[in-house]
Write a protein that binds this DNA or RNA. Structure first.
Length: 271
DNA sequence: GCCACCGGTGGC
DNA sequence: GCCACCGGTGGC
C-alpha cells in the first residue's frame, strides 16, 4: 500500500496531523481530500467537524482547512457563520454552541439525586446522597485508573502529577500511577481525613484487611522539609496559596478540596 | 460493523 | 463552475 504521510500542522495544537489523500479513481480522480487527526487518532474531514470538537479551545476563524494554515485577513468562510449567528441571536435563538463559553458537557460522575415519579402512591423521591458512597466498590478498583492522563480539549496532555516523596502504595499494584489515582480519588470522593492504610495486616494481606474507606496508601508522616518545600508535596496542580512558616498549617488546594497539614502529623491532615 | 473512498449537492 | 462538506457504500 502506498505510504501516505501525515504531516504536523503547526496551526493546530501539538500532536495534530494533517493528511492529504489523492483520489485515484472515479469522476473526481486527481482531486484530493484533506483529513486531520487528533493526538488520539480521531479523524476529521471538515472544518465544521473540527470546530465542533475544539470548541473555544482554538479559534479556527482564519484556519484554512485545505492548506492547514492560518490565513489572517481572509476571515475564511466566516461570513456564513457570522450571518447565521447574528440571525439566530436576533431571533432570540440559543447562542451558537461553538462560540458560547466553555461548559462541562460530560455527564457528572458525582452523586446526584434520582427522581422517580409515577402514579403509584407507594413510590418515593430518592434523594439519598449517601447511596452513592455506600454502594459496593470493587477491591483495588483504583487499578482501572492506571495509565489515564488528564488532557484538555485539544487532547494536549496536561502536566503529569507528582507524588510526595516517601508515599508508598498498598495492594497488587504498588506503582506510583495507581497510588496517585487512589489518593486523588480519595481527595475528591470524601472530605474525611486521609490516613492511608493504618492496619499492618492490610499491608500484609490487603485483599482481606484493606480499609475500603481509605486509599491504597501506606500511612505517611509529614515532615518539616516537605512543608518548607511545597514542590515535594503537591499533587499536580496543588500548590500553596502563599509561603507559610513551617510551624503553621498551610493550605493546599486540589480541585475544590482544601486540607490542612502540620509538620509531624500523619497524612490525615495532609493536602 | 467499520471506514476509506468517491459521489452528490448546496452555497458561493 | 467550483468545492467544502458530508452521505452512502463496497470491501474488508
Amino acid at each position: 500500500m502506498m505510504e501516505r504521510k501525515k504531516t504536523d500542522c503547526p496551526a493546530l495544537p501539538p500532536g495534530w496531523k494533517k493528511e492529504e489523500v489523492i483520489r485515484k479513481s472515479g469522476l473526481s480522480a486527481g482531486k484530493s481530500d484533506v483529513y486531520y487527526y487528533s493526538p488520539t487518532g480521531k479523524k476529521f474531514r471538515s472544518k465544521p467537524q473540527l470546530a465542533r470538537y475544539l470548541g473555544n479551545a482554538v479559534d479556527l476563524a482564519c484556519f484554512d482547512f485545505r492548506t492547514g494554515k492560518m490565513m489572517p485577513g481572509k476571515l475564511q468562510k466566516n461570513k456564513q457563520r457570522l450571518r447565521h449567528e447574528t440571525l439566530s441571536l436576533a431571533k432570540g435563538g440559543k447562542p451558537d454552541l461553538n462560540t458560547a463559553l466553555p461548559i462541562r458537557q460530560t455527564a457528572s460522575i458525582f452523586k446526584q439525586p434520582v427522581t422517580k415519579v409515577t402514579s403509584h402512591p407507594g413510590n418515593k423521591v430518592k434523594t439519598d446522597l449517601q447511596r452513592a458512597v455506600e454502594q459496593p466498590r470493587q477491591l483495588f478498583w483504583e487499578k482501572r485508573l492506571k495509565g489515564l492522563r488528564s488532557s484538555d480539549v485539544t487532547e494536549q496532555v496536561l502536566r503529569t502529577m507528582e507524588l510526595p516523596k516517601g508515599l508508598q502504595g498498598v495492594g497488587p499494584d504498588p506503582s506510583d500511577d495507581t497510588l496517585l489515582s487512589a489518593i486523588a480519588s480519595a481527595l475528591h470522593m470524601s472530605s474525611a481525613p486521609i490516613t492511608g492504610q493504618t492496619s499492618v495486616a492490610a499491608e500484609k494481606n490487603p485483599a482481606i484487611w484493606l480499609n475500603m474507606s481509605q486509599p491504597l496508601c501506606k500511612t505517611f508522616t509529614v515532615t518539616d522539609e516537605q512543608i518548607r518545600n511545597p514542590l515535594q508535596i503537591r499533587l499536580c496542580s496543588v500548590k500553596a496559596d502563599q509561603p507559610t512558616p513551617p510551624q503553621e498549617a498551610s493550605h493546599f488546594v486540589f480541585g475544590k478540596t482544601k486540607r490542612l497539614h502540620r509538620a509531624g502529623e500523619r497524612f490525615s491532615k495532609l493536602c
